[in-house]
Computed example of a mutant assay.
Amino acid sequence: MRLTLVPAPDPRVYDDAVRSLPITSPLQGWGYGEARRTLGQEPLRFLIRGQGGQTVGALQLLRKRLVPGFSTLYAPRGPALESLDLLPAVAEAVRRVARPGDALLKIEPPQPVPADGRAVVPSDYGPFRRAETEQPEHTIVADLTRSEDDLFAGLHSMARRNVRTAQKLGVVAGRDDDFEAFWEIFTATNERAQLGAFPRAYYETMLREGNAYGGEAYLVLSRYEGRALAGGLFLAMGGTTAYLFGGSVRDDRLREDGTPYKDAKAPDAFYWNAMLDAKRRGYTLFDFWGIPRVLDESKHSYGVFKMKLKFSEMRVWYPAYDLSLNPAAPAIVRALRWRKTRNNLRKRGSADDVL
């Protein structure tokens, strides 16, 4: 099948297509591209049309300039499609619109592959070859089509106990507009774990633009006696909501008699109420967004993994695939890996990736 990429300048028309496709992701939404624009990346949006003119997909590409004359094209958790069988034809369609300096195309098809040892991750899709991802390749998801009672029963016993404790202590968790509280939690978590972060404008833009044209971007905070102790930023589209950024802080307050506040289990309340909120608003898949490919108990990421695992044991892969667009592509892949390793060493003193 020959496919055609038709430029999509209308954000509502584009997001309507992304939202309606069966294989889709919030990162293919218009708002995510606008957030990436603040980082100097150029979002390009297309509707993917079949030979009869019908829309069979939508594609948001981020053009990322490397050095003068060369750039890469990246489809974050995309493209959105009717079927993965269309990917070989998508490759040829992108070749026809790529610039001479576009050396490489990276895609991350938003179709999860169960990480249960029984499913095989495809090594290729036509000319696309398995490659490193930019988004977390390994993650935990929760099926929100189950009843609330079934969801709660499926939590680890420690999570159920902690959620009940938080409820008894009066922890309040839910959607919240307090960006300053989120930012305090997020930056404190990053500093504690030696993680990098984008400029503040990136997250503010994602919240604003992610809500503008048909998707959703929102905050969930977990508060104990008024103070936000855990929270996150979510991006949603179609049936999926994704917990992209967040964290938690310790409650270091003292009561009037000098005694410390109790551990109110605010992070557990955050996760559980975020899941309930998503379910009640019609989302069917909750993406906890990233766990380590290789488990190491000495690393911060292991604690994050154990926390998420208390709320769902459904682990999946979202593999990436590369398509060379000109002969410089192999050298560019090596250069990108070298740059990522250097950044890891500079930020955390380790060459290993976070996830």
Rank of each mutant, 00 (worst) to 15 (best):
R175L: 10
F245I: 03
A98N: 09
L73P: 10
L27P: 00
L66M: 04
T240W: 03
P109Y: 08
L144F: 12
D10A: 05
A91T: 09
G196F: 11
K64A: 09
G52I: 01
V94L: 09
V304L: 08
A119L: 08
F186Q: 00
K64R: 14
A89E: 13
G154Q: 07
L309M: 04
Q28N: 01
G303Y: 12
G101D: 04
L39M: 04
S222M: 02
A153L: 09
Y125I: 14
G226W: 06
A329C: 05
E82D: 13
Q111Y: 14
I48F: 03
L155F: 15
F46E: 06
H138N: 12
V121C: 04
G170F: 10
R339S: 01
E148V: 14
E137F: 07
D352S: 09
A80R: 07
L254I: 11
K279M: 10
T240S: 04
D277G: 06
R45E: 15
R37T: 08
P79V: 11
R77E: 09
G196E: 10
L144I: 10
G349Q: 03
A58W: 02
L285S: 03
A278N: 07
E297W: 12
Q111N: 14
N326K: 13
F270I: 00
S222R: 00
L151D: 13
A242C: 14
F245L: 04
L144N: 05
R255Q: 14
Y224R: 01
R223T: 04
L285C: 03
G33C: 03
L325Y: 06
D296M: 06
L355I: 07
E132C: 13
V113L: 03
P267F: 14
L47A: 10
T165E: 04
K299Q: 13
L323D: 00
D10W: 01
L309I: 02
G126N: 13
P127Q: 09
G246C: 01
A230F: 08
K299Y: 05
L62E: 05
G117V: 15
V90Y: 12
E42I: 13
V18W: 00
E42F: 14
L169G: 03
R118C: 02
Y218K: 05
A335Q: 06
P109C: 07
R37L: 05
Y14Q: 05
T259S: 15
L87H: 08
K310R: 11
G239P: 03
F70V: 15
D143V: 03
Q135T: 14
R45Y: 06
F128G: 07
A75Q: 08
E191L: 11
F286K: 07
G290I: 05
L5N: 03
A193S: 01
R253K: 11
I140Q: 08
D150F: 06
F311D: 00
G226L: 07
G246H: 02
Y32G: 00
F311V: 01
V121I: 15
S20H: 01
Y302D: 01
E191V: 02
G290P: 08
K299E: 09
G174V: 06
